[in-house]
């Protein structure tokens, strides 16, 4: 980058100024975004290791005088009622999100493949119909879906949430995956079929591994959507032992409004699975898997 701007700028100082201006502008923007996203996280972490009294002080303690892990101990202790609730909410969220993720991959993969490879009557109509749902804010569907769930007897079950999250997550998952399949040359499957594979084997052995980044992206997207969702979980579930984390944390701590360190510790632990998921899977995103397959 620097050599480019230097070659260009020779004898043209005005040009150099403009390029540098853009570059510094870009850096400043990135720094701003970094602070914007990281500062609340840092503040959350710091508050979670304060005592209840220290958290309420004004002016605030920028750095806790007496850091303590008491909030974490309380939340993770299955002996007391707070810990029991938190661990149950955590478990509920994990079940709902994992079920949503697995189902959405199972449905999105064949659907996206069909949209990408086959022509069938109503293909375009269906493809855009799939997107129609995403043109409206999610709350619009709250009441109709609740009535529907009650009619089929799913209110107060985790199944109602899994079904709802699927209808929200699938459209984008299918679009995303279709893009991946479009980029896998059809000749690869043809070659596999000539080499002795059935159509299904060609898909499983050749195409699936190449679409791994897409499947992983789809999975992460579905998981996070389900993990963070609040309104539907709040409406569809009323029994305490069924609540998911977003609702559980809110409901549980509104009875103890002053326990900010506890709230922050719970919020922090809620973000851990998502971060771990990203760290484990991010390396699959950077690889262009089909490189070398066909002549360009």
């Amino acid at each position: 980058m620097s050599t480019v701007s230097e070659t260009i700028s020779r004898g043209q100082p005005a040009r150099r100024l403009r390029i540098d201006g853009w570059r510094w502008g870009g850096r400043a923007f990135l720094v701003f975004m970094l602070l914007y996203t990281a500062l609340p996280m840092i503040w959350m972490l710091l508050t979670s290791i304060k005592s209840g009294f220290a958290a309420m002080q004004f002016p605030p303690q920028w750095w806790p005088d007496q850091p303590t892990l008491a909030s974490y101990q309380k939340l993770l202790d299955p002996q007391n009622s707070v810990g029991q609730d938190f661990l149950r909410f955590f478990w509920n969220s994990l079940i709902v999100s994992t079920a949503t993720t697995i189902l959405s991959v199972i449905v999105a993969v064949p659907a996206a493949y069909a949209f990408s490879r086959f022509t069938f009557p109503g293909r375009n109509f269906l493809f855009f119909a799939v997107l129609l749902r995403n043109m409206f804010p999610a709350v619009i569907f709250l009441v109709p879906l609740f009535i529907l769930m009650r009619a089929i007897g799913l209110v107060n079950t985790h199944g109602s949430l899994v079904l709802t999250y699927l209808t929200f997550g699938l459209p984008l998952a299918i679009w995303l995956l279709k893009g991946f399949y479009d980029n896998i040359p059809v000749q690869l499957e043809q070659a596999a079929r000539i080499d002795g594979a059935t159509r299904f084997q060609a898909f499983i052995l050749i195409v699936m591994p190449l679409s791994a980044p897409g499947i992983i992206a789809t999975a992460i997207y579905s998981f996070i959507g389900a993990w963070n969702e609040y309104i539907y979980a709040y409406t569809f579930l009323s029994k305490n032992e069924q609540l998911t984390l977003p609702v559980g944390i809110q409901r549980f701590f509104s009875e103890n409004t002053t326990d900010f360190p506890g709230l922050m510790a719970a919020s922090f632990m809620m973000s851990v699975p998502v971060v771990v998921l990203f760290l484990l899977l991010q390396r699959y995103f950077v690889r262009a898997l089909t490189e070398g397959a066909v002549k360009h």
Binding site: A191, R193, D195
Partner: peptide, 29 residues
Amino acid sequence: DPKDRDIAMVFQNYALYPQKSVYMNLAFP
């Protein structure tokens, strides 16, 4: 089906399996 026609084919754009080594590409059929 292509697999039942007992043919081998060289594709105009190669169509090599990108995730497989040369050895595994040759071994696949």
